[in-house]
């Protein structure tokens, strides 16, 4: 019991620096969701139902642009595809847990919880209580996300309309994508996806976004295969 609690708090502590960055992100999301035409209830509930920052921003933006529901759902799926990679990455460490624990931890498997947890799993020895660290990181992020969303919704109407808050969305994505640009295949994937997104912008239902993402992925894989056919990844 003691060991579990200790690991839980270690997870909370490891997550803390990430929470400082997440809070304003949630604040902006709450305000943005409201100004996009979502109700306060829907904006708040999305933070626990979808619980994935960037896709919530995109959803708010698509609701604002009156995109069809199916397109929004597909876009959420595409934007959140990366979570399958996280799932594959932590799977070996949680394979002996019960289905209930697997489901609970999957719900908490966000970018930020993954970032803190995978470091713990890779550096510390795996014990029967290791997943409590994951829970501590995930739960503290979840709590911060709900509270910051609520603050954003509350402050939303008092934020002047002339403030270009919508620009926070591309800025956040710039902050997420730039540190990843470490090798040529990834840079090529990002640039080709960006260019196709510009060229295909006029396609209906944001199809240009999906076309651009697929182009970027294919370009990245082709280039990676060319550069190091034997040591992919």
């Amino acid at each position: 019991m003691n060991q579990r609690l200790k690991l839980f708090w270690a997870g909370v502590r490891a997550e803390f620096p990430l929470l400082i960055g997440v809070f304003p992100f949630g604040l902006i999301y709450g305000a943005l969701a409201l100004s996009s035409g979502l109700s306060a209830t829907a904006a708040q509930m999305m933070s626990s139902i979808v619980f994935a920052g960037s896709s919530q921003f995109v959803t708010a933006q698509l609701v604002h642009g009156a995109a069809p529901g199916l397109v929004i759902v597909l876009t959420i799926a595409v934007v959140n595809l990366r979570h399958m990679l996280y799932s594959a990455s932590v799977a070996p460490y949680v394979r002996n847990l019960s289905m209930r624990w697997k489901a609970l931890l999957s719900y908490f498997l966000t970018d930020e919880a993954y970032a803190a947890t995978i470091i713990h799993y890779e550096e510390e020895e795996l014990t029967p209580a290791s997943h409590w660290f994951f829970l501590g990181a995930g739960l503290s992020l979840w709590f911060t996300w709900q509270v910051s969303t609520a603050f954003g919704i509350f402050l939303g109407t008092s934020i002047p309309e002339s403030w270009p808050l919508d620009f926070a969305l591309p800025l956040t994505f710039i902050a997420m994508v730039v540190p990843v640009l470490k090798d040529r295949p990834v840079i090529a994937a990002a640039l080709s996806a960006g260019l196709v997104a510009l060229l295909a912008f006029s396609l209906p239902y944001k199809l240009g976004l999906i076309l651009a993402a697929l182009t970027g992925i294919i370009v990245g894989m082709l280039l990676e295969g060319k550069e190091s056919p034997k040591e992919a990844l």
Binding site: A88, A190, L191, G194, A197
Partner: peptide, 28 residues
């Protein structure tokens, strides 16, 4: 087992999707 091709593809998902969103927002 996670198919190798899929693992390779998933690595490019975040930069591709995020750039596809950012470029039009900033450039047009």
């Amino acid at each position: 087992e996670v198919p190798e091709t899929m693992r390779r593809a998933l690595r490019f998902v975040p930069p591709a999707v995020l750039s596809a969103i950012v470029f039009p927002e900033v450039l047009m």
